[in-house]
Structures are given as C-alpha cells and as structure tokens.
Design a protein around this nucleic acid. Structure first.
Length: 790
RNA sequence: GCCGGGGUGGCGGAAUUGGUAGACGCGUUGGACUUAAAAUCCAAUGAGUGAUGAGCUCGUGGGGGUUCGAUUCCCCCCCUCGGCACCA
C-alpha cells in the first residue's frame, strides 16, 4: 500500500529502468514522420563531472525533445563526448594514467549523471571523438580540406604557452595575455604550423547568417569577430625608387590630403629597404624588441605609443607631397597591408603619434563618402588605388604539439613534401605510449615514438616521417552533429540519405563562450563539406540559442578553489531530478545569469508534492465531469504551455502549470481523471519521473503499460477558451476608476459604454463635466476624456 | 572607445502590434494543527494615506516628449552585465 507521499528516491530509479528497457527515446534514422533534430553541446568529460550549467542546457533540450515526441515527431536528441583535450593529457603526465583510461572513467560518470537526470538521449547514437572509428572521419575531413587547399603549413609567429609547451590560437589567449586553460602568460615564438583557411569563407560566414535563426547577440558577435571592413588600398611610391611602393589600407580615402606621415609595422618587408644608413641601427633595434613582445603585450601598451623614423620618404599619390616613413608597433602586420597612412587630424591614434614625435597636422575640409569615391576614382586610373575588403578574422591555427588529439594524417617526405595518408589507411591511430611529456623543443610526445613516426612515403616509397602534430580539440566538435545521424557507418562519415532526412539541426543549445569558436568553426567545416557535395545545406544549424550562466549562491562563478560548486548529484539525492530540472528552468529566462538559490528550489519541490497529492485525491474522487471553470483553466494552460515551449519561455510555462494547480486544488472533485491526465501530460516534459508515476496511478497500472512520454500532447479546444463574462476596466482621463463585468456575447460599444456611464463610481468622477471624447477598445477597455478644471 | 543585452516590490521574475503594473515562486507577518519544533494548511503582503471600510495619491533607473492612455514608442542622460578592443 502506498503512503502517497512523493518520494523521488523511490520512483526515479524505477522509471529509469523502465524507460531503458522500453527504448522510448530511440529515433529512426529515416522515417515518413516529420523529424526534429534537437542538439545540445556535448561535454568535455572532465574529472569534475557534470556541472549544473550543463544540466540547465540539457534540460531545455530535453523538454523540447519530449514535447516534440508527444507531437508525433521523429526526434533525434543525441549525446556524446568531446573527449580529446589538454586536461586529460596533463592528468596523464601527473599520474601516468593513460588518457584513454581516464576518459573512459569520466564518460561513465557523466553518463550515469545524465541518466539520473532523466534526459531522453538516444544512447544508441552515442559518439566519442577519441574513438578511432570516429576520428577516422575527422582525419578524412582534414584530408578533404588539404586537397582543397584549405589546410597549409606555415612558419609563423604564434602565441606560445611555455607551461603547456604548445602553440595557441588567438581564441585561446585571454585578454590578460594568459592561456585560457592553464592561466600562464603567453609568449611569442616562430614555429611551423598547420593552418586552416577560414578567412576564405569570411564573407559567407557573415552573409549566410541572414538565412538562419540565431539571436541578435550571436549574430553581432560573429559579425564583429569576422570584422569585415570595406575600404581602399592606396600606393605611396618610395621617393628614391620609383619601382617600389608602400601600399596602405584605409577606410577613409577622403582624408588622403591630410596625410603627414606613413607608418610601417616592424615586420613589414620594406622596412629594411626604406631605412637609411644613419637610421639603420636604431630601426633594427626597435623591430627586434617589438618581435619579442607578444601581440597582446603590444596592444596592452596602447596608451604609450612608440616608433622610430626610418629616414625614408614616400610620395602622396594625390598631391605629390613627400611624407616621412616611420616604423611603429601600433601598426599590426597581419591586418590590412601592415602599413598605415598617418592622418592625425582625422584619427585619434595618428594624432597621438604625431603629437609624440612632433609631426604636422593637416586638416581636410572636404570629407565624406563622396570625397572618398572621387579620390579613388582619380587614383585608380593610374593603378595607384583600388577598392577592397579586409577582415579581422585570421586563419585558424590547427596544430597542437600534443598527444591527446587526432593525429594529422600527413606524411612528411623529403622528396615529395607533404603527402596525405591514403584514405584506405585511415584512421591514423594514436600509438599507445606511457611517456606523455612533450619533447624539450616543444614537439608532441608522438615525436619520440620512432616506430610510429618512421614510415614509407605513400607517393615514392622512400623513407618518410609522420606528422607529429595533432589537431586542436575543436576538430572533433566541428562536425559531430553530422555523425549522430549515422554513428556506426564504416563506409562514410554518414550516409547521404540519412543526412538529407535529419539535417540541418533544428535547434542548437549551448554556451555563449562558443559563439566565436566552436559555432564559427563548425559552420566553416560544414560549408566546406557543402561545397564538396557531402551535405545538402549551406548551414548546419537552423536555430541557435545560447543558454545563460548559473553562478554560485554567493554570486561568484562556481569554482573548486572557492569551494562554492553545486554538484548536480547532491541535488538529485536531496530533492530528486524533477525538482532540479524544474528549478533550473524556473529561475528565469533561459539566456540570463542567475545565482543558485536553494530556497527557490524548495518551491518547486512543494509544487510537485502538491500535484502528487492531488493525483491521489482525484483518483479517489473518480469524477467523470469537469467543472466549466476548471475545464477552461486546463485549456488555457494547454495554450500557454504550448506557446511558451515554442519560444523557450520555460519559466512562464511552469508558472502557468502552477496557476492551474492552484485553481484545481480549490475543488479537486470538479475534475475528471482524463482531464487531470491532460495536465499530467503538460507536466511530463518538465518532470518526467513524477509525471510517469502519476500517469501510472491514473491508469491504474495497466499492463502492458504505455509510458506518458509516448502519449500525444493534449489537444487545445479553442471553444473552451471563450469566457462568458469579461471584466472591462473603465478609465476617466486615462486613470482606472472602475471595472465592469460584461457578457462576452454582448461587447458592442453601445452596451459597454452605456454600462460604463451607468456606474455610480464613474458618474461620481465625471460629475457635471462634459465628456469630450470616449475611447472604446473592443473587449478591452473604455476611457472617458473630460474637460479638466483649473 | 565600439557592438549587443539589461535596469520593475524585501528577493528571482511576469506583463509590450501602447490598454486593470507586480502573474508565478521565494521570503516575511498573522492564524490553524502540535506538548514543542519542523512540515503542512489558511490569510495578508509595492509605498504612502485613510478609521484596520469605501477610497485617494504616488510608483517600472533619471529627465523631457508623443498620446485619451506609456514598463511598452521617440530624444537626452545615468548605472550595470556580456563580447571585442591600437583592426587603420
């Protein structure tokens, strides 16, 4: 005999087992049914376990997925592991435990946590980026990029983390010039690196944003990150050598008459040519010290500009004036042409520089777009100017000098150069090693595995070496959403048929920190695959929403060192998964930041308890009639919850469920079991365990039992929404003075205004004054405008 | 500095094609139950004022404006969060 007390500890494990054996959440790879692909970012399975922030995003996806299933859709809601990465490798260095072992353990923990939370993931589609059967295809895609000329090697100054002994992408360096993962200060170094030509896709990555549904903040962040700016390239001929010129990029060609100097970045190839003998020593010294500073150091010292005069001059192509050429590190080599025309009168930075070195300031009277066009028109005739576009976005540094990543499937042959590993030899698997330390010169530990490194060249058959760099952890996540569609395919990364059916992703939920990294990178890869004909849409995600942040109760970020971390497992133990899920959704809008509030969590628990108790009362009363009031409330709730789920307003959807319960609780005998069933269905996506338990109570535990999560979403009867009386506010001069109740069948202006005028309160306010205007908004309100005295 | 969000009770928040501000939850206060406490249930809960009644006045960061009517629209300003930042 049940004691009818809500006991999540008892019911949750029971239903978990039931769902598992029923295979409720499996999706069909191809089906006649309409598909819905809900994607949440797969986690990096760290040793710390699942974070309440993960739980929030996964719950959002879960609610939407469950609701879509109840709407009869074939729903893919998959989960996997983004398991390559540095922390696991560092852990291996410290403990000697192989990354594969640690990863497997962490995955087990994460998976168990996810199952305890009742997420309806289709585990038959589980993927793991470190599984050779997965990274085979990551490598395969890399080879496609290589064949297409989008992957190349280049010696270049890079951000170098001396602690991790690895090169970093700009995205991995914080604004404090530290490595985002380990916190150490980043240096600068020349190293041969793999790069991916994401810049080639810059325009499309901006322009195609208009074809997808991303929120405004995501769109503008991506657009800013890519940083397209349209301008002109203008040539300044070297005064002592007519064949040589310095080309500058400017968005303000109209200020060309105001140029009083030209500045080269210290790395500019023309620096040596233009520098005079007298200035050579000083210029060389300056350039050398500039190189040693990292880029971020350079930009951080922005207030104090420095520079040095080369002794050389160039000719302003517009007016023939001779202008001095300087070298200064406020000019960035990688942006534009690495050279800038100095117009102190119209640019703050140029002004600061001119003031410092006492350079002349010339104001240009006639500025504006028309002036620009005119000047470019004049100069382009002699080939001295052209229009063009620049981007802040730079090519993606794609190699890491580490073990725990996908080996780059390239063979270095002295004779043939860079030779791709033949497709039938993929995957290039990681050798099993025990020494995870990088080499002293900063190469991957793979470089020490000579058996693995030394191979014969696939092209010439001569001795050659494998590439020892591995891919960054962004590689596996750049295409994982495609693999979920067909995760066990050994012939292709996914079959065309399955891709055509299930992609693109209908909704992608994830963290805001991935807007300019993962989301941009994966859009890029997807477009490359699209160009090659492997996928049929230009964009991978139809809709992207960034979830907000959960802070610790003290308002700080949760961190081990502060000891303020909320562990989802503790919450599940204390209040159950349903309460945890609903609490997080009830905090507020899905994309905002909230500190953890344990007392608010209590409110949700109480709510579930009340619904639970009500279920037993309703079953006992066993009514087959529902009162008009409650029937109406049920349908209003169906309408509200459905609409709110469509727009991800989880917090107000839950509020609507609470309101509904508040009404029913007043008269639990006035609702039929089947109508209460409708309510439980509305609750099911939010609190899947409790709803299932209550459903089983309503159904009298029929055998074979059909899960609530396999039921259809309650149907809305709009006729039930019509109320027989409406309360209409009556205003006098825009201020509320009375309300009247009017039969909804009779809301003509004549009747309503007549009733309003008859109100004694309103009569009192109007008194003897003249009504100058009567405003009637049908069914909404009445306003009398009267002459005001004095 | 630039780009994008925000600013509403003691707290989290709700409500915008302009139309009863404060839904829902937390907290608080009073009451019931209990030997007592917890839990639960009932009631009250924006501020001021009024006899603890009807009611009235004020009230959505500040100041102006449009309107019969503004949390909502327009202009100016302040604060705050997130992103970018010597990008020519």
């Amino acid at each position: 005999m049940h004691d009818h007390v809500y006991n999540p500890k008892e019911i949750e494990p029971r239903w978990r087992k039931f769902w598992e054996s029923a295979g409720l959440y499996q999706s069909d790879a191809v089906s006649d049914k309409e598909k819905e692909y809900i994607l949440v970012e797969f986690p990096y399975p760290s040793g710390a376990g699942l974070h309440v922030g993960h739980v929030w995003g996964y719950t959002m996806g879960d609610v939407i997925a469950r609701r879509a299933r109840m709407n009869g859709k074939n729903v893919l809601y998959p989960m996997g592991w983004d398991a390559f990465g540095l922390p696991t490798e560092n852990y291996a260095i410290k403990t000697g435990i192989h990354p594969a072992i640690a990863t497997a353990q962490n995955i087990e923990t994460f998976k168990d946590q996810m199952e305890r939370l009742g997420f309806s993931f289709d585990w038959t589609k589980e993927i793991n980026t470190t599984d050779p059967s997965y990274y085979k295809w990551t490598q395969w895609i890399f080879l496609k990029l290589f064949e297409k000329g989008l992957a190349y090697k280049q010696e270049m100054p890079i951000n170098w983390c001396p602690s991790c002994k690895t090169g970093l992408a700009n995205e991995e360096v914080t604004s404090e010039n530290t490595h985002e993962r380990c916190g150490n200060v980043v240096e600068r170094r020349m190293i041969l690196q793999w790069l991916l030509k994401i810049t080639e896709y810059a325009d499309r990555l901006i322009d195609d944003l208009s074809t997808v549904d991303y929120t405004n903040d995501i769109v503008s962040q991506q657009v800013n990150w890519i940083g397209r700016s349209e301008g002109s390239y203008i040539k300044f001929t070297v005064s002592t050598d007519n064949d040589k010129y310095i080309e500058v990029f400017t968005t303000r060609a109209d200020t060309l008459p105001g140029v009083t100097f030209v500045v080269l970045s210290p790395e500019h190839p023309l620096v040596a040519d233009i520098t005079t003998k007298e200035n050579q020593e000083e210029v060389e010294k300056y350039c050398e010290s500039a190189f040693l500073k990292s880029e971020l150091e350079r930009s951080q010292l922005q207030k104090e500009k420095t520079g040095v005069f080369t002794g050389g001059y160039v000719i302003n192509p517009l007016n023939g004036e001779k202008v001095p050429v300087w070298v200064a590190d406020y000019v960035l080599f990688h942006y534009g042409t690495g050279a800038v025309m100095g117009v102190p009168a119209h640019d703050e930075r140029d002004m600061a520089f001119a003031t410092l070195y006492d350079l002349p300031v010339v104001e240009v009277p006639d500025v504006g777009e028309d002036a620009s066009k005119h000047i470019i028109g004049l100069l382009s005739v002699n080939g001295m100017a052209r229009e063009g576009v620049e981007y802040k976005l730079r090519d993606w540094i794609f190699s890491r000098q580490h073990y725990w990543g996908e080996p780059i499937p390239i063979i270095n042959c002295k004779k043939c150069g860079l030779v791709p590993v033949p497709e039938d030899q993929l995957p290039v698997t990681l050798p099993n090693i025990t020494d995870f330390e990088p080499t002293i010169d900063g190469r991957s530990p793979l470089a020490k595995v000579t058996d693995w490194v030394n191979v014969t060249c696939p092209a010439c058959g001569g001795p050659a070496e494998r590439e020892t760099d591995t891919m960054p952890n962004w590689a596996g996540s750049s295409w994982y959403f495609l693999r979920y569609v067909d995760p066990h395919n050994t012939d292709e990364f996914a079959s065309q048929k399955k891709l055509d059916y299930m992609t693109p992703v209908d909704l992608y939920i994830g963290g805001a920190e991935h807007t300019t990294l993962h989301v941009l990178y994966s859009r890029f890869w997807h477009k490359v695959l699209f160009d090659l004909g492997y996928v049929s849409t230009a964009e991978p995600y139809s809709k992207r929403r960034n979830r907000g942040l959960i802070l610790a109760p003290d308002g700080n970020k949760m961190s081990k060192s502060l000891g303020n971390v909320i562990n989802p497992n503790d919450e599940v133990d204390a209040v159950g998964a349903d309460t945890l899920r609903m609490y997080e959704l009830f905090m507020g809008p899905y994309n905002e930041t909230f500190p953890w509030n344990p007392s608010a969590e209590k409110g949700i628990y109480r709510f579930i308890e009340r619904v639970y108790a009500l279920t037993y009362i309703i079953v006992e009363k066993n009514s087959n009639i529902t009162s008009l009031e409650i029937d109406q409330k049920i349908h209003k709730t169906i309408e509200k919850v459905s609409a709110d789920l469509d727009s991800m307003k989880f917090n107000t959807a839950i509020a609507a469920l609470m309101e509904c319960v508040n009404v029913i609780e007043r008269n639990p005998r006035d609702i039929s079991i089947s109508n209460w069933g409708s309510f439980i269905k509305l609750l099911a996506p939010f609190a899947p365990f409790a709803a299932e338990e209550m459903w089983s109570v309503l159904c009298g535990k029929l055998e074979p039992y059909e899960s609530i999560h396999a039921q259809s979403w309650p149907e809305l009867d709009r006729n039930k929404l019509i109320e027989d009386t409406i309360t209409i506010p009556i205003q006098v001069n825009g201020k509320l003075r009375d309300t009247i109740n009017v039969s909804s069948g009779d809301i003509t202006e004549e009747t309503v205004v007549g009733l309003a005028k008859a109100s004694t309160k309103i009569m009192g306010w109007i008194g003897g004054s003249q009504i100058t205007k009567t405003v009637y908004v049908p069914g909404k309100m009445v306003n009398f405008v009267i002459q005001q005295e004095g």
